[in-house]
């Protein structure tokens, strides 16, 4: 059963169709990537899911029922891209306060904070202030405040920006652990290599509409261009149209070829073997999400244009 289902969501602002008829669903326990260039409408979408904005049209189904921001936001943890904490407030007090706002009792909050602080090696921070922390440290703290109340749905907007590789891995492992325990994670970013690594399922939005929806593997299959890398010293020159492929590139010690027509990879291998070519390696080249992303959003202006909305 999907934990979250968006049905034909629409949100127009004065000069922007920020979200224009977007639907998708996210299964419980999934790590879900919400991708899109700057200004695509990701933040507006997330703000509707967190109850900050009401959609103009469409509806959100959360946990099988119509989304009710009043009660359901207690089950959501949101780390916005524009994040922050009270600079002058003591870290322990502040974390307790934020947890209480999510509905935890003071005793529960304190107990959970202590556990997380031990896990993240933040024991000595309790009586410090946020202004004493470095950017990476406050990032970790922000993550803790987001997941402290055991939310069913965790929304992370660019969670790794400003983190060093060690802390990035620490948070990444936590995200996996939380997903394993049943939490659903929405992960919004531009960093495609992280998406490929972490996400099960992605949705790509551009200019307020959904342009891609599927699992990472399926999308890669859908967008593959029948490219293969063949490790050979030399491809025989006498091709004149009989070869089942064309050479599109030449890296050191390997050729990149595209299979033509209805030929299969085996046909390529047969062709080469018949000509006595010594093959060291043969690999399919799947497009990276980065390539797909760029290909799909290419041609749209770099920054979003203002438009008149007559809704």
């Amino acid at each position: 059963m999907p934990l979250l289902e968006l049905q034909h969501l629409r949100k127009y602002f004065a000069t922007q169709k920020a979200v224009d008829d977007i639907s998708f669903s996210i299964d419980a326990g999934q790590i879900f990537g919400l991708l899109g260039p700057n200004g695509a409408g990701k933040t507006t979408l997330i703000r509707m899911i967190t109850g900050i904005f009401y959609p103009d049209e469409g509806q959100i189904i959360f946990n099988g029922k119509k989304f009710d921001p009043q009660n359901d936001i207690a089950h959501i943890g949101y780390m916005p891209e524009e994040r922050g904490l009270y600079k002058k407030m003591k870290i322990g007090e502040q974390t307790t306060y934020l947890a209480q706002l999510k509905g935890l009792s003071k005793a529960d909050a304190t107990k959970k904070i202590k556990e997380w602080f031990i896990k993240f090696d933040m024991n000595t921070w309790w009586n410090k202030k946020v202004e004493d922390l470095s950017k990476g440290m406050s990032q970790k703290l922000q993550f803790v405040t987001t997941v402290l109340h055991d939310p069913k749905l965790i929304i992370l907007d660019e969670p790794f920006s400003g983190l060093d590789p060690v802390n990035t891995n620490l948070i990444k492992d936590e995200i996996y652990a939380l997903a394993k325990k049943g939490a659903t994670v929405i992960f919004s970013t531009h960093r495609m290599e992280q998406v490929e690594e972490i996400c099960d399922h992605i949705v790509l939005v551009n200019k307020g509409t959904k342009i891609l929806d599927g699992t990472v593997n399926k999308i890669k299959q859908d967008f593959k261009e029948n490219l293969f890398s063949i490790g050979v010293d030399q491809i025989p020159p006498s091709l004149n149209g009989t070869a089942p492929f064309e050479v599109v590139g030449n890296e050191d010690l390997a050729y990149v070829v595209r299979i033509t027509g209805n030929n299969k990879p085996n046909d390529v291998l047969n062709y080469l073997l018949q000509r006595g070519v010594n093959i060291r390696s043969f690999n399919e080249i799947l497009p990276s999400l980065n390539d797909i992303f760029i290909r799909l959003v290419k041609g749209t202006p770099v920054s979003r244009q203002f438009q008149n909305v007559n809704s």
Binding site: T50, G51, I52, I73, I76, Y78, M79, P80, E82, R83, G84, L85, Y86, K87, L98, L101, K102, Q142, T145
Partner: peptide, 16 residues
Amino acid sequence: MEEKTNRIAEVIISSV
């Protein structure tokens, strides 16, 4: 203004 410039506003209004 402090809440807005510290960017904590969005964190808080996802709770209240």
